[in-house]
């Protein structure tokens, strides 16, 4: 499903990744842990192909970083869902439209947009807030909307970059429950975090990254 093989990437600042390896199979739940600046976000960027390795390669589903064309990248991303610490919601439209956006920009039929958006909102238990604007929501609710947007395309892999970084402990547990529920339905989850307490409480697989190298 995802295979990163000896991938290196150097930024001008000197940071980057050094021959990292990672394999994620269908239905896996993997924590990617490491201190700030270790390269966790860069690993995720390699997977959704915002960045490309200078050495080695990344394979996601049927797409290989060595031979993917620029035009194929949007189609690769439709097989992934991505969520971030800062939610990246569009402030100029309501909750329903934020989630539906992921379907509309991929040319989905209006009838299907409505059905699938309502289902994704139900998955994160926010159907009742579909007409609220993002600024009317709490941090936890915003992240749940971001998750709904990430899963509305029914991706087989969910990438989460510090999804609980801005949330209090109670809301963190709520978000984790949603991610675990999605994982139980078969979606592979790769979650980057530096919240070791959260990781220790879980029995999921953990991959550590430090100074751009994977340790385990």
């Amino acid at each position: 499903m995802i295979r990163i093989h000896n991938a290196s990437l150097k930024y001008a600042t000197g940071d980057g990744l050094d021959r990292i390896n990672l394999e994620i199979k269908s239905g896996d739940f993997v924590f990617l842990v490491g201190p700030t600046g270790a390269g966790k976000s860069t690993v995720l960027k390699l997977i959704y192909m915002e960045e490309f390795p200078t050495e080695g390669y990344v394979v996601v589903q049927d797409y290989n970083s060595n031979d993917i064309s620029y035009k194929e990248i949007p189609y690769l991303r439709r097989t992934l869902g991505v969520i971030f610490q800062d939610f990246k919601l569009l402030d100029d439209r309501d909750v329903f439209e934020n989630v539906a956006f992921a379907l509309r920009v991929t040319g989905t039929r209006s009838r299907d947009v409505k059905r699938r958006t309502l289902r994704a909102l139900a998955d994160v238990r926010l159907s009742h807030k579909s007409r609220k604007m993002p600024h009317e929501l709490s941090g936890g609710e915003k992240q749940r909307i971001a998750i709904a947007r990430a899963i509305v395309n029914e991706p087989s892999i969910l990438l989460a970059d510090e999804p609980t970084g801005n949330l209090d402990p109670k809301t963190t547990v709520e978000i984790m429950n949603i991610l675990e529920k999605l994982n139980a339905r078969g979606t592979a989850v790769l979650m980057a975090t530096h919240n070791y307490e959260l990781v220790n409480r879980s029995s999921k697989r953990v991959v550590s990254i430090k100074n751009g190298r994977t340790l385990s």
């Binding site: 915002e50 949007p74 439709r78 990246k88 569009l90 402030d91 992921a102 920009v105």
Partner: peptide, 17 residues
């Protein structure tokens, strides 16, 4: 910036963006 970034992330093609 935000809308272009979001569109890219959810798999919008250049035409849609």
């Amino acid at each position: 910036a935000t809308i272009i970034e979001t569109m890219k992330l959810v798999g919008a093609t250049r035409f849609f963006i």
